[in-house]
Design a protein around this nucleic acid. Structure first.
Length: 504
RNA sequence: GGGCGGUUAGCUCAGUUGGCAGAGCAUCUGACUUUUAAUCAGAGGGUCACAGGUUCGAGUCCUGUACCGCCUACCA
């Protein structure tokens, strides 16, 4: 650090003009005995409350005194009158500095204030000649100096790369972005409220451990130094939560990050937020109610609307109840395909060729069934729907239906072509589970990096007996994409992962 | 992973046939006590993403690299 001291001292020599000016203002303020990163200012009012309270005030009357704090977003100097726009989390309001209302010394201080600075302001509310609700500043304090200039006031920050890499700036400049993340927080909070109201317990299970199971995906690897232990980041919440069920917690859930070492796209971020919940003595019908209940709660209590933005300008109505359609019905309705034909080696190959893809790489019935369904059926699943009666081939973790061993107790809830929820009647038979792990373990030996590891601890837990249990998983980020009409997952994750870039 | 497109001032963007690097906002200087994309007069600000190549001469043409976006494939 000390080696850089010279460089730091001369910082203004080698920086864009606008930053040098701001550094100079900072020094001049300190020379006047004003600390631009100092104590708090007694902010007692929110700007949106001020607007609410005085919004329909008589133009000639003087309003009450308010004390607000926020960021200076614009400054219009007009000789001995200066107007600014001050913005806080939800609101923005005009502030007025007059030479005779703020005093000569304070008025001169305005020369040292730059757009982007954080200000605390106290004064009376009034309405200007042009009818703008304004705070007449009597007293103000610099609460934080902005050493970098803000983006352009009219167009704002548009460059998508800059927005993702500098989300603080994105939120600061673009109110809709700020609102979207406020909404994200409220939605997640409402999910917690709903589940807590049903008597669920929120638990926190380990994010790292020796094994990463509960899904088929490559984990991130990390390392514990003191123990000299290789560790993996979790890819799902499932196995620990079910161990909680074995332990006698009857309704548990977790909302947490999982990490999957896979590609990045508009629908995939390496770390993302999952909700998983498990309820003993429950079945798929209960899980359906809960899945529907979560979406309903969000619509009613947070969005205050059943309508969410559709993919092409229209809207999608999320008012329950949602219809059910079996997996086989979907194939038949949208593709004229019989599920049984997909299990037939000859007929399935014909269907695949007709759809225009080859199945050489993973030539197994499960892969084919899944692929055909997502190609033929999923594009039609715009309105909320439960797809039920999944084939056993693509549902290795669910219990088989007693009346038809080729189908399992499982549903997925689709909205706007997104698979929003996935639910099972959980497999509780430890011997069956052991067999399935063994099969997966064979794949690992053959080099499959995404196969499920043998989890002896989980098996041992199951061997104490797990009651009949319903489980539900929801990808929170994707749910938020659907609810907010976002086309990229990066629009609902505040700080999405970006590749390192020089000079940005 | 594959295909297409983008990268020029702090920000938003122009840049013609290859011929001195442009505008608006922002910044600086000056005027202005009710403006609001304030206005008016002037000024400064550039590694044209990066590395090569062609050329008398490259922001512009060619090759490669990086990052971002869109489409596409897989994963949720």
């Amino acid at each position: 650090m000390n080696d850089n001291e010279q460089e730091v001292l001369n910082i203004t020599d080698d920086m864009p003009e606008q930053m040098a000016v701001r550094h100079k203002h900072l020094e001049e303020l300190r020379a006047l005995g004003i600390e631009p990163y100092g104590d708090r200012f007694p902010v007692t009012d929110k700007i949106c409350d001020v607007r609410q309270k005085y919004g329909d005030m008589e133009p000639d009357k003087a309003g009450g005194e308010v004390s607000i704090g926020g960021r200076l977003m614009a400054l219009r100097t007009h000789g001995k009158a200066v107007f600014g726009d001050l913005a806080d989390q939800e609101g923005k309001i005009q502030i007025y500095f007059g030479l005779d209302t703020v005093g000569k010394d304070n008025f001169n201080l305005l020369k040292l204030i730059d757009i982007g600075d954080l200000l605390g302001v106290k004064g009376e509310v009034f309405i200007t000649r042009r009818g703008e609700l304004t705070v007449m500043v009597r007293e103000f304090k610099i609460l934080g100096k902005a050493l970098r200039p803000l983006p352009e006031k009219w167009h704002g920050l548009k460059d998508i790369e800059l927005r993702y890499r500098n989300r603080h700036l994105d939120m600061l400049m673009n109110q809709d972005v700020r609102e979207r993340f406020i909404l994200r927080s409220r939605l997640i909070s409402a999910i917690r409220g709903y589940l807590d109201g049903l008597g669920f317990l929120e638990v926190e299970t380990p994010a790292m451990g020796m094994l990463a199971g509960g899904a088929l995906a490559r984990p991130f690897l990390t390392h514990h130094n003191a123990l000299d232990l290789p560790l993996k980041m979790r890819i799902a919440l499932e196995l620990h939560l079910k161990r909680c069920i074995v332990g006698g917690l009857e309704k548990v859930y977790e909302i947490g990050k999982v990490f999957r070492n896979e590609g990045i796209s508009t629908k995939h971020n390496p770390e993302f937020t999952m909700l998983e919940l498990y309820r003993s003595h429950a079945d798929l019908t209960d899980m359906m109610e809960i899945a529907q209940g979560i979406v309903s709660t969000l619509c009613e209590k947070v969005l205050c609307s059943w309508e969410v933005p559709g993919t092409d300008g229209g809207t999608v109505n999320l008012k329950p109840p949602y219809p059910k359609m079996t997996f086989a019905e979907g194939l038949k309705k949208y593709g004229g395909i019989e599920l049984s034909d997909l299990r037939d080696p000859v007929k399935s190959k014909e269907i695949a060729e007709k759809l225009g893809f080859n199945i050489e790489r993973k030539d197994n019935p499960g892969y084919l069934i899944d692929k055909v369904f997502s190609m033929v059926v999923e594009p039609h699943l715009v309105n909320p729907v439960f797809i039920v009666d999944y084939p056993v081939e693509i549902s290795p973790l669910a219990r088989k239906k007693p009346e038809d061993g080729s189908l399992v107790y499982r549903f997925e809830m689709f909205i706007k072509n997104f698979e929003i929820a996935n639910a099972f009647s959980e497999l509780a038979d430890p011997v069956d589970q052991h067999e399935r792990f063994k099969a997966q373990h064979e794949l690992i030996k053959k080099g499959d990096t995404e196969a499920h590891p043998m989890d002896e601890d989980y098996l041992a837990a199951l061997e104490y007996g797990m009651p009949p249990t319903g489980g539900l998983g929801m990808g929170i980020d994707r749910l938020l994409m659907v609810l907010t009409g976002s086309s990229s997952i990066r629009d609902v994750i505040i700080f999405p992962l970006m590749k390192p870039a020089d000079q940005v």
